[in-house]
Amino acid sequence: MTMDIELTVNGEHVRESVEPRMSLADFLRERLQLTGTHLGCEMGACGACLVLLSGKPVHACLVLAVQAAGETVETIEGLSESGAIADLQAAFHDRNALQCGFCTTGMMVNAHALLGDNPAPERAEIRDALSGNYCRCTGYEAIVDAIDATARKRASDVEAPA
């Protein structure tokens, strides 16, 4: 069985025919060549595959492409190209919050969603939000620092616009 699905990915309308068993992650990576969505465990444990589905972070490995029909998806590529996370990316770079980079795209998607919901999170809240994202390299501290620094910078930019 294949099904025709239509959805919006990074602002572009997409129409494809897929097997129901195809995950949204495989759809993004293999059909749309959006390989910034990473696949680690394919069972919801590692968080490497996070994307925004209708604005909310979800595991693309646990959503079937057919379930995303009619919805809006944003991937790391969309967030990066729009400049929405430019400051977050810079903060990760400055703080050495990535080493191999495998977890980074999922971390970014999650951090972006967190700061959207809660512009001034406590460190404990940042940790809680990232509790489903594994990083095997950095030890997390630098990642929490980078997100914390981005939140503070955004707050001070609002108070004192350039």
């Binding site: 919801g44 968080g47 979800v58 595991h59 999650n110 489903g132």
Partner: peptide, 9 residues
């Protein structure tokens, strides 16, 4: 219950 992203689904 689980992590934030799982709670969205």
């Amino acid at each position: 219950v689980a992590h934030p992203a799982i709670r969205n689904r």
